[in-house]
């Protein structure tokens, strides 16, 4: 009987690394994807993509008039020159009436 309990130890230890799977508070993307953002009020909206050096690599929306509510937008993982961005962390900033209202982080990789 004691032998059975001993056999449980390696099984439980194997479970340990799996405890954190899929709990990252950001999405991992490999292809063009659509993201959603909410506007509390109507106004002029800018949507920017920044890399991990806090450099804007793409402007998805510029001074676009939008109404309050939920909106969606696609990023094709291309930069301003039309090249696919290198793998890494990217941030989408939603700016409403010149005020930053939301930042979303994504890990882009092949």
């Amino acid at each position: 009987m004691k032998t059975h309990w001993i056999l449980l130890f390696p099984v439980l230890l194997m479970l340990l690394p799996g405890c954190d799977d899929n709990t990252y508070p950001f999405d991992i993307v490999t292809d063009p994807f659509t993201f959603i953002y909410d506007l509390q009020e109507s106004g002029s909206v800018d949507v920017l993509v920044l890399n991990c050096y806090v450099v804007t690599v793409r402007t998805l929306l510029s001074d676009s008039s939008q109404s309050a509510g939920s909106h969606s937008l696609q990023w094709d993982l291309l930069d301003a020159e039309g090249q696919r961005v290198p793998d890494g962390l990217y941030y989408i900033r939603i700016i409403l009436n010149d005020e930053l209202i939301d930042t979303q982080m994504y890990e882009v990789h092949q």
Binding site: P25, L50, C52, Y53, V54, T103, M105
Partner: peptide, 15 residues
């Protein structure tokens, strides 16, 4: 300072 901007941007995304 630039790393602080990066940290601030990352924290703004909810981390």
């Amino acid at each position: 300072d630039d790393e602080k901007d990066f940290a601030e941007m990352t924290n703004a995304s909810g981390l």
